[in-house]
Amino acid sequence: MTGGYFEIQNISGGYGSGRVVRDVSISIARGEVVCLLGRNGVGKSTLAKLACGFLRPMSGAVQLAGVEITGKRPSENLTLGLTYCPQERVVFDDLTVAENLSLMRTDRRLDEFEPYFRAFPRLSERRGQYAGTLSGGEKKLLSFVRGLSEGSAMMVIDEPTEGVQFENVVRMAELMLAQKEAGASFLVVEQNLTLVDRVADRIVIMDHGEVALSAAASELDRQQILAHLTV
């Protein structure tokens, strides 16, 4: 299981003493998009947090480009090229849209966000508005743009399309594929098959904190996935 660009190796962990994720390993190659699927509460988000340094794993390790990053702070991981977009509380509510984007830049110019603004004109219209007043879907778009614009080689995105309308999901997929062409890798926690169908190279399905299924996207048909997801 070595040789991947982003390696999650036998990770277990959770909140406090609760073990939500049990011995999960996922390896992601350069330029690969892995979609992580599963019903609510099976530990997908927890796995993402464990992988990115927001939770300390009880056991297991994480490697990025051959460098061990287990236990490193998220801000440090970012400098190493690991971006994370959370599932909840995705933007800074009491900052404006523009501030949310320019927060970590010394100049306050938004020029380089123009391509994203063209894709999502709604965000551009709202740049002076407090992010807290955006709808859930708009917040997700803002968070997605923030993450993508960091230009990291590895991105972990937790449910980017929650509440996002169909056309915008398609544009998100296009933007991701463009980044992927440039060599970026993705781990996307997702419920929405619209996005998964368009971007996934490989699909990992989790159940009860463990990996239930891992296969190339081309090998799985929609029915098999649905069987794992729907009621």
């Binding site: 169909f166 929405n192 098959l193 619209t194 649905l226 729907t230």
Partner: peptide
């Protein structure tokens, strides 16, 4: 009944949101 309901299937898979 609920599992057969097309509306229910739609909101779970998310395609037509």
């Amino acid at each position: 009944e609920v599992q057969r309901n097309p509306e229910v299937r739609a909101v779970y898979v998310g395609g037509s949101r």
